[in-house]
């Protein structure tokens, strides 16, 4: 990992980009974390702040154009790694792509009929929530339900990945995405209701 504080360029007394900014590292390597679904959140937060402390463009406000451009790229890359690892579904998917699994957003979908049925029911419940006696309370309850089901899938994913059952793991990631969409939908509905209450 780069030195705690970047060395000083002779020309401006401004910091320089750490030489070992290595864009070929994967997100886990960049953050100095083991390649695994289980995540040490505190370690991720620490690594993220430390890296941004070295790479953020604000550290290079007095440097040359090239260094500044590199800093923007470096900081954007660190942000991307952080956002990917922080989110369960994105981290799961990323782990699979590291194993060479390909995703095709246009075609890939879950095909398990029981799962799709459950999705339809949840979606209907969401659509009906605004008509409930306490619509926001109903939405909160639904959101909690969605979160619980999603974290159950996360646990199954971790198991499948450990056992190297990549096809099963991929199916689980696709299912997790369904729950993410439901979660976003619930959030949007709540926002709309709140706006209407004004």
């Amino acid at each position: 990992m780069a030195a705690a504080r970047a060395s000083t360029s002779e020309a401006h007394g401004a910091p320089v980009i750490p030489v070992n900014l290595d864009f070929s590292q994967n997100h886990f390597e960049l953050m100095g974390l083991p390649v695994s679904f289980a995540l040490d959140r505190a370690a991720l937060e620490d690594a993220y702040r430390r890296l941004q402390g070295q790479l953020h463009p604000d550290r290079f406000a007095q440097s040359g154009d090239q260094e500044r451009r590199l800093a923007v790229q470096g900081a954007a890359w660190v942000n991307e790694a952080y956002a990917t690892l922080k989110d369960d579904t994105r981290r799961a998917r990323y782990l699979l792509t590291l194993k060479g699994v390909e995703f095709n957003d246009e075609r890939d979908t879950a095909s398990d009929p029981a799962f799709l049925m459950e999705q339809m029911e949840l979606r209907e419940a969401l659509e009906e929530a605004p008509e409930a006696a306490d619509p926001l309370g109903r939405l909160d309850a639904l959101s909690g339900d969605i979160a619980a089901r999603r974290s159950a899938l996360s646990a199954q994913f971790a198991e499948a990945l450990d056992a190297d059952r990549v096809d099963e793991a991929k199916t689980l990631v696709l299912k997790m995405r369904f729950y993410d969409k439901l979660r976003d939908e619930a959030r949007r509905t709540a926002e709309r209701l709140e706006d209407e209450l004004l």
Partner: peptide, 15 residues
Amino acid sequence: DVLAGNKPDEEMLLL
């Protein structure tokens, strides 16, 4: 003041 380079040891960072 930080961005002008007047405080080279400042750790403050805005994300």
